[in-house]
C-alpha cells in the first residue's frame, strides 16, 4: 500500500476519533474488514470465528480510535497488532471460558508515547517498508512466512520444497539486511 493511502486512512481514523464520523468509519471498515478476514483465514482460523474476530477488531477501532496515533504507526500496523492479540486472546478465552475485555492490555497495543517520538516513529515505519523493497524477493518471501504467517524454518522448508539450509540462510540474510537498516536509521536520527 502506498504512503498516500496510509495517510488517507490515518486521516479517516482521526475523523472517527474526533467526530464519531460513521462514514469515515465505514470507509476504513470496507477496506480493512475483508482483509482482516483474509488474514485470519490464512492462519487457519475457522470461518465463523474469523468473522467474530473481525467484528471485535473493528469494534476496538470504533470505540478506541482515540488511542490510535497516526504518527506512531500506520493504521494497518495498529489493526494488525489488535487482530493478532485478539486471536491469541480468543484461544486463551476458549480455554478459560471467560469473556472478552476490550481494555485488556493483551488486546490493545501500547498507548501513545510522547509527541517527541511521533515523527521519528512514522519515519521509521516508512523507512522499514522502503528498505525491504530492495530485498531480493526470494529472501523476503521466506521472511514473510515467518513474521506474517508464523512458520518455523522446518515448516517453511516443507511448504516451499527448499532445503532447510537454504531457508535458514535466506532468512538470516534478510534479518542481516533489516538489522543494518535499523542501525542506519538510528545513526541518522542522531
Amino acid at each position: 500500500m502506498t504512503d498516500r493511502v496510509e495517510r488517507d486512512f490515518s486521516h479517516l481514523a482521526l475523523c472517527v476519533a474526533k467526530n464519531r464520523d460513521q462514514t469515515a468509519f465505514a470507509e476504513i471498515f470496507d477496506h480493512f474488514a475483508p482483509r482482516l478476514k483474509a488474514y485470519l483465514l490464512r492462519l487457519g482460523t475457522p470461518h465463523l470465528q474469523a468473522e467474530e474476530l473481525v467484528q471485535e477488531v473493528m469494534m476496538v477501532l470504533w470505540h478506541r480510535t482515540n488511542l490510535y496515533d497516526p504518527c506512531k504507526s500506520s493504521l494497518s500496523t495498529w489493526l494488525f497488532r489488535i487482530a493478532r492479540n485478539r486471536r491469541i486472546d480468543a484461544v486463551r478465552r476458549a480455554k478459560s471460558r471467560s469473556t472478552a475485555d476490550l481494555d485488556d492490555p493483551m488486546i490493545l497495543p501500547e498507548p501513545i508515547e510522547s509527541a517527541q517520538n511521533m515523527l521519528e516513529a512514522r519515519d521509521r515505519d516508512r523507512q522499514v517498508r522502503a528498505a525491504m523493497i530492495d530485498l531480493p524477493r526470494e529472501q523476503y518471501d521466506l521472511l514473510r512466512m515467518a513474521f506474517f504467517l508464523g512458520k518455523s524454518h522446518n515448516e517453511i522448508a516443507a511448504e516451499t520444497g527448499l532445503p532447510l539450509g537454504t531457508v535458514k540462510s535466506r532468512i538470516r540474510l534478510a534479518f542481516t539486511r533489516m538489522r543494518s537498516n535499523l542501525g542506519q536509521a538510528s545513526v541518522e536520527d542522531v
Binding site: 480493512f32 475483508p34 483474509a38 468473522e51 473481525v54 521509521r124
Partner: peptide
Amino acid sequence: ALESLSGAELSDLQGVAL
C-alpha cells in the same frame, strides 16, 4: 519493524467478502 511490515502485508492482502 516486523510489525510494520505485517501491517503492510495485511493491507496488501486480497480481501475476503464478509
